[in-house]
Each structure stands twice: as structure tokens, then as C-alpha cells.
Design a binder for these strands. Structure first.
Lengths: 128, 128
DNA sequence: CCGCGCATTGACTTTTACGTCAAGGTCAAT
DNA sequence: ATTGACCTTGACGTAAAAGTCAATGCGCGG
């Protein structure tokens, strides 16, 4: 049935503000239909928003997110452009792998902090 | 031999600016010695800087990074504080796990884009 | 002694990603 | 017809994390 979403429906679903969605439109990330001046978001817009939010969570800038979205929508037709894009994709992937390692190391560190807390708690618990 | 590092040595090693290191000092994240007014960073400072940069890469704010550094240095002595901290640690860990999943999904997506590029390239290559 | 490179502080500026008004249009229900 | 919910555009404000600029100091090779 291809439901259309109003702006506030989506802000509620994703916990973001209307300002944020309008901003994403200004940035050319989403292109909702209009009934009069009112925005109506398609399922495809909704999916893009999910992508944006994911990108945001992992620290991509709007420009980077836009680049990925565009790359996905219409990969360039020219050979040189394609090769260039594959280089950029490869770089991004390396960056993400580094980030994943950073996260894993930090999780380990958090585990350590937690352990220290437990130890201290036990000491205190025994002492009193 | 406990080498001491000048500010520019470290900026070169880590690819950051002197302004950044001074900013981190203002924020209380590092405490270099002083010979006169000149900063001399100890190996411990250097390690903290590595931690800061790692935190930065995974999107932690300076405030969050400071919190983790402090938690690691001196875990609080009081029972309530300890329990509180463990809750915060647990939250951060969940956040990081979500982030790791986001990263893995995005890597998968990048793989897909790359594949599309390769397909297009093959098509072009054959056609010409 | 002069200039060079490296160091300092302090103040002002910038960028990103929105938040926050202001001022008003539309429509359904009361 | 007024209230209230929801929508709009446009302009201005803000916080974080530095960048940039100005003015200055210190030690050293030539």
C-alpha cells in the first residue's frame, strides 16, 4: 500500500526533531513528496533516514553520508570514476575496520574498569 | 630512560596540531611537566594521548573521554558511586556494541557498492 | 648581535549539525 | 469561529573541537 509518512510520524519513530528532517532535506539527503507544502515521506525516504542515522551513529559527517547514499543510488557510468570510487570505498572500509578495532579495545577497557569496581565493592562490603 | 617529548614531537607522531594538545591540557586530560614554560610530555602523557585519539575516532566527546580516563586512574571509593559508575560503564558498552553492529552493516554495504562497481566495470570493459 | 626555529599565551574565528524562535498557513473538532 | 494540533519557511543562536592570528620569549649557530 506504500504508506506515506508525515514528518512528525517519523520524528517520533526515530526520536529526532522536525528540524533535523528538514535539515536533511536541505542537504539533499531525502526528497519527500509534497501535498501542497506539506512533506510526505515515502518508504524509500524512511529507509534513507535509517541509513543516515546509522551513519551518524558511527561518526560519519553529512557529506560522507551523502556520498555513500549517492554511490548506492547511482554508481557512476564512467570507468575512471568507477575506479576512483572503488578506491574511496576501500579507504572507508579500512577506516571502519580501524574503528571496529578501537571499539573492541575500548570494550575490553570498560570490562577492566568494571572488574576494578567489583573488586572495590567486594573490599568495602567485607570491611563493613 | 623515561624519555620526555616536546610538543612538536608528539604533533608529528600523531598528526595533530599543537593547538590540539594545548586544548587537551586546558581540558585537564594531560599534565605535561614544565621546563620554564615549555611543556615536556612524559610517556604516561603519551599513552593518554593515544587513548584520547582512540576515543575520538569512535566518536566520544572530550567529556566522555575525560570520564573514562578518570575512572581508569582513580575508581571512586564510595559504594554508591561505584554502583553508579558500573551502570554508566554498562550503558557505554551497549552503545559501543550497537556501534560495532552499525559498522559491520556499513562494511557489508560498502562491499555491495564495490561489487556493483566491478560489475559496471566489466560491462564497460566488454562493450568497448 | 641577529635572525631562525621552536615555544608560549590569549583572543578571535570557523565548521558541523542542528536548536530555537518568529510568524504564519491548514484543517478537524468543539 | 475559535482552539489546538500539525505543518511551513526563514532567520538567528549555539556547543564542541579545534583553526588561526598576534604578540612575545628563549636558546643557538653563524
Amino acid at each position: 500500500m506504500d504508506k506515506l509518512y508525515t514528518i512528525t510520524e517519523l520524528t517520533r519513530e526515530f526520536g529526532i526533531s522536525t528540524r533535523t528532517l528538514r535539515f536533511y532535506e536541505d542537504e539533499g539527503l531525502v526528497n519527500p513528496e509534497r501535498r501542497g507544502r506539506t512533506r510526505l515521506f515515502r518508504p524509500s525516504d524512511r529507509r534513507i533516514i535509517q541509513n543516515i542515522l546509522r551513519g551518524r551513529r558511527i561518526g560519519f559527517s553529512i557529506a560522507e553520508i551523502r556520498e555513500i547514499i549517492l554511490a548506492y543510488k547511482d554508481p557512476p557510468g564512467e570507468s575512471g570514476q568507477l575506479t576512483l570510487m572503488m578506491k574511496r570505498v576501500s579507504e572507508k572500509r579500512d577506516e571502519l575496520k580501524q574503528k571496529r578495532k578501537d571499539i573492541e579495545d575500548t570494550i575490553t577497557e570498560l570490562d577492566l574498569i568494571e572488574e576494578q569496581c567489583l573488586t572495590r565493592l567486594a573490599e568495602i562490603g567485607v570491611g563493613t
